[in-house]
Structures are given as C-alpha cells and as structure tokens.
Design a protein around this nucleic acid. Structure first.
Length: 595
RNA sequence: GGCUCCGUAGCUCAAUGGAUAGAGCAAUUGCCUUCUAAGCAAUAGGUUGAUGGUUCGAUCCCAUCCGGAGUCACCA
C-alpha cells in the first residue's frame, strides 16, 4: 500500500535529517483536501520545532527526500506547513485496472476463527415494535454485515424477553377484559393485539392507584398495593411455578406476538442465526446468584432477597433476586451471558442496546467479571446507541406516544409509491412496481436512521415525512439505476468492458477524483467496523454518488466519440455501481436496476 | 442531588488536533429536443452554548459555568 510506503519513508527521512523518531500512525498521512493540488498531505508543523527550522524549509527537505525515495510520487507542493504529495496518474490507473472487475471489492475473504457474537433486537413480547426498535434492528443488522465484511465470524443472536412481569400484565388484562378476543376474531396483528392489553393494564393500574389515594393512601403506597398489581405479581409467581393455566395462556399469547414479529422482521429484512428465549435460560441466572451467595460475594436481606454491594465501585446496591425467589432483569442477563459464553467461546459478545441501559451493563459486566470472576464478563461489550426522540420527547409505549414500526414502514412504502407515480414512472406495474417502491421506501427509512452516528440521539418528526431527495437512499439508488441503464446500453452495443486502458491514458480531473474515492472504500469499511458505525459507510456512499452525478452531468459517457474514453468512462461507472451496491448491502438496503 | 452523555446554518445531520467548519431540507435563481431532472449548477445562511486554559494550530483535549437528555426501580 502506498500509504505505508510513504509513512515508512517519512520515518526514515525524519530520522536521517533531524534525528526525530515518530510512531507509525496512519493519522500522520492524510488525504489532500480537494481545493489543493495533491493526493496525500503531511502536516509539517509538528516536525519544525525539533528540526529547528521553519515549517516551509522542513517541508521542502522532506518533499525532496520523498520524491527521491518513492517512485510513485510525481511532485510535491507546499502551502504553509502542509506538504502535498502528488502521485503519478498511472498509480491510480493501475489500482483501477486491478480492482474494477472485483465484485467483492472492499470485502475481505479471510475469516477469523473466534466467533464474534452480536445480540440485537431482543424485543419484549408484550407490545409491538416501534421506531426505537427499528433503529436497534437496522443498526445491529448492519453492524453484523460490516463486521463480517471485515473478516469476523459473526453470529447474530436475538434474545426474546418472553417472560417477566410485563408479559403477565398483558395476559392479566386480556384474561379480564378480552372476552376471548384473538388475532383472527379482531383482525389485529398478534403483537398489536397483545400490546393493546398492555396499555389497558396500565389504565386500570392507574385507576386503582387513584382510588387508593382517594381512600387516604400515599401515592407510593398505592403504587405497591393496587389490587391489579398484586394480582399480576401473583400471576408471575404462578408462571415461575409452572402453573398449567397461566402457562397455557402465556404460550398462546406469545405465539400471537411471534407471528406478528415475524412479519415485521421479514419486511425489515432482519434475520438471526440463533434465537434465545429468556424463559429457557433465566433459571441459569438464578444458579449463578446462588453460587455467588455461597461464595460470599453477594448477600441476603432478611426478606430473603439477594443483593450485590457495589458501593465501593461507585455504583449502588443491586437487587439480584427478589425475596419471593423470582428473578429480575439482571438475573437472566447474567445467566444468558454466561451460557452464551460457554456455548461459543467468543472473542467478543456485543450487545446492541440503547444508551438508557449504560448503567445496567456496567453493573452486569462488573458483577460477572469481578464478583463472579467469569470470562464472559470480559467479553461483554455494550454497544449503546442513542434514543430516537420525537418533537414531544421520548417515546413511551404505555402512553401511546410511539411511532409504530409496521405503520411507519407502510407509510414509507406509500410515500415511495406516490413519488414514483408523481414522477411519471409509469412503466412499472404490478409486482415490479411494488418491489421497487418497497425498496425505495424501506431504503429511505433505513438510510435515514443509519446515516446518523449511532451514539447520538436523533430526532424524528412524524409531521414531516422522510425525504426521498438529497442525502437519502433513493438518491443513491437512483445513481445506481442510472449507471445500470448506461451499462445495458453498452451491452446492447456489444462494448467489451474487460479491456484495460493503455498506459498512456490520462484521466480527467473528475475521473481521477472518482478513482481516488473508490480507492478509499475498503478503508472506509474497516473504519466502520472498528467504530461500529454504519454512518461512516452511509456518508461515504452519499459522497461517492454525489461525485458520480457531477461526473455524469459534466462528461458524456455513451455519447463520447473517442472510443477509449467512452470505454474507460463506462468501466468507471461500472466500478462505482459495484461499490454502491456492496456498500448499500452493508446497510441492508437494496439497489434497483432501474427506477 | 450523584454519575454519564449531548449543545455546530432556520430545521435534520457531517467534520481520525490541521488549510477558507461542510452536506441535505427549507428559501431564491438557472439547466430537460441532449446517456433517467428522485439529477446538476449557483446565491444566501455560522462568534461551533459561554468564559478561561493546553497547543505552532481547538468544533474536537482540560477546567468552570449555562442549557438539554439519560440514569441512580423488587420495570425490562
């Protein structure tokens, strides 16, 4: 790689000329900004002081040395303390010729042996998915694809939170107020039906509290003693004791939810290698807690509840098991982490979970790693992402202030459909039109989410529809479709795109710019992998598509009369299309042949 | 209140400590008899929340303040 070559030569030169030693850090060599002439830039200021010369003189001395040592460098120029290196055109052409037909360009073929576990989605089975879940799913799925492209042996895992007090709430409300309603009789999608009863429970719970307060109870007391809350706690105990009736109800209602989720996942294009159900693994967590209690790292209160004291580490006392022996959130997380570690012996276990749970994961990791001294604790990495906020604030399922996932996907489809029709693209019909609009609508939605840095909270305004113009998936999809259209025409003319351009060929500035951007793609994928950030790829593709569109506008391609130029431009377009397709695939977004 | 994260154009977002802080949307203006106008080009829009500090150089690192979010649950 030319970058390494330059860095090594720079190290040598600095040592020879000024006895300065520098680390081999990629950041010392950067891409030259577009407004200056050159390909790579070395910032000289930092070397001027030890060299005891002005930056300009140091830059010149280094430039002369590099020019001599590296044959690929054609010339250099100095602007203030910036040394800009310009490579020979044939260096870029050589790269182009080498890689242009590589349909896996940017995706490594070697695979690491140790598995890389990534858990995402992990829904509760008491309510349907909303926009926050979409961000989780789309991020998790994309990061999995990116890590795979970087050579990791990725295993995608989903842990369905199918047990716990929250499910019992839906169950109890249905039992009491449902009149035997089912997805079939109501026409509601299963997860939506169950979600309806979750909301209904909350309404009755609030009413109970209100009544108790009216009879003279404090709010805190009323929250604990509300009859419906006591009933649902009883139901959870029965569940853990394998009560037949409760279990039967639970199985039935979970089935409804799974069927509903399956539909949603399908539409989102999300899949998993392995699905765990909390109900199957939570008992293992209880064992770990018992073990820790025996070992003396946890302690028991007189109501029999079991705790971990983390106050020395700046955290709180943490409940691990309730007095009645039922498990809490962290109990099952401890169990699943350890079970999963034993099953796969992964180098890393990544959890894609919202940033509201940072504290929870700190506690979980600490307890496993330092209290129980388990390897699983070390492997845990909480990949926390920001919340999706509405103009009215946070989304809350119980209060109905959520953007429903199914509704939003359907809206995006309809919006794409309207847009397609408005633009007068009438040659699409039936299944093909449906497929295209789905690709555009869902693509726009996914891209809207993925182009934002995962760590940051993001804003979604339901009043304003998600754009289909500008920095969006349809813009990129359109660029791809335009290129494919060109290539169909070239094919019809029987133009052979496998021939290489001659050594004497001189690309124009905008063509060279495109080649350089294509050259950056593999490094972009690696960066995205290291930073767990699909946003880096999203922004890269946008820049590439934008640059191509400029080229498309400025330079004739099929109409170019000079044959070699025409052929080269077609090949360049083809290469761009390949990278767009590959990169969009890493985001889980399809690109059409025409649109 | 303790801890954590975030404040960049009217709005939504970019910018591994580097050159004149960039895109998109919205606004204004050009370009379809010309390879797909879901496009291209142009204009306008900024004291990067504030004040100090470190540095040759700070949107980025440190400190203090202001504003916002999250968390500190026998919810998950």
């Amino acid at each position: 790689m030319i970058e390494e070559k330059i860095i090594i030569a720079l190290q040598q030169t600095l040592k020879e000329l000024y006895a300065v030693e520098i680390a081999c850090d990629k950041s010392i060599l950067q891409k030259t900004r577009k407004e200056f002439e050159g390909d790579f830039t070395i910032v000289i200021f930092q070397y001027a002081k030890p060299a005891k010369k002005s930056p300009e003189i140091v830059a010149q001395e280094i430039g002369d040395q590099l020019l001599e040592k590296i044959s690929e460098i054609k010339s250099y120029n100095i602007v203030k303390g910036f040394l800009n290196l310009l490579l020979h055109d044939h260096y870029w052409l050589h790269f182009f010729t080498q890689e242009k037909n590589n349909i896996h360009f940017g995706i490594t073929s070697k695979k690491e042996s140790s598995p890389f576990l990534i858990e995402f989605s992990s829904p509760n089975t008491n309510k349907p998915l909303h926009l926050g879940h979409i961000r989780n799913n789309v991020l998790g799925s994309s990061i999995a694809a990116i890590e795979e492209a970087c050579g990791k042996r990725v295993i995608k895992v989903n842990l369905v939170n199918d047990r716990g007090i929250h499910i019992c709430k839906s169950m109890l409300a249905w039992q009491r107020f449902g009149n035997g309603e089912t997805p079939e009789t109501s026409g509601l999608k299963g997860d939506h039906l169950v979600g309806k009863y979750y909301v209904l429970f909350d309404q009755h719970y609030k009413a109970d509290i209100k009544n108790l307060i009216a009879s003279g109870m404090t709010e805190e007391e009323a929250a604990k003693k509300a009859p419906i809350m006591l009933d649902v706690q009883e139901m959870l105990r029965k569940w853990e004791q394998n009560d037949e009736a409760v279990r039967a109800l639970w199985v039935m209602m979970n089935r409804w939810v799974y069927d509903g989720f399956e539909e949603t996942y399908q539409r989102m294009g999300i899949s998993f290698d392995k699905i765990y159900h909390e109900s199957e693994v939570y008992l293992f967590g209880k064992q770990l807690v018992e073990k820790g209690l025996k070992a003396g790292v946890f302690y028991q209160k007189k109501d029999h509840s079991i705790w971990a004291d983390l106050t020395d580490e700046g955290m709180d006392e943490k409940l691990l098991l309730r007095g009645d022996g039922t498990s809490v959130y962290i109990t099952q997380d401890m169990g699943t982490a350890e079970a999963r570690y034993q099953e796969f012996l992964p180098e890393k276990m990544v959890y894609v979970v919202g940033n509201e749970q940072i504290y929870h994961f700190n506690v979980l990791k600490f307890i496993l790693e330092y209290k129980l001294k388990l390897e699983a604790g070390k492997a845990i990495f909480h990949l926390s992402y920001g919340m999706v906020e509405l103009p009215s604030g946070k989304m809350k399922s119980r209060e109905g202030t959520v953007v429903d996932a199914d509704d939003l996907m359907e809206e995006m489809f309809v919006q794409a459909k309207q847009s397609t029709e408005q633009l007068g693209k009438t040659d699409f019909e039936g299944e093909e039109a449906k497929k295209l609009n789905e690709m555009i609508g869902l693509g726009a939605l996914k891209y809207f989410i993925l182009k934002v840095d995962p760590k940051k909270n993001m804003m979604f305004n339901p009043e304003e529809s998600i754009d289909l113009n500008g920095n969006t998936a349809p813009f990129i999809q359109y660029t791809h479709a335009r290129i494919r259209s060109l290539l169909r025409k070239a094919d019809a003319e029987q133009i052979d795109l496998s021939v290489s351009v001659s050594d004497s060929f001189i690309p124009e500035q905008n063509e060279k710019e495109l080649i350089k951007m294509l050259y950056d793609y593999p490094q972009t994928v690696l960066n995205a992998g290291e930073n767990y950030s699909p946003a880096l790829i999203a922004n890269y593709i946008f820049d590439l598509a934008k640059e191509f569109n400029r080229f498309y506008q400025e330079s004739p391609i099929m109409k170019e009369t000079e044959l070699q130029k025409k052929n080269f431009r077609l090949q360049l377009s083809q290469f761009v299309a390949t990278v767009i397709k590959n990169a969009m695939q890493l985001l889980g977004i399809g690109v059409p042949e025409r649109m």
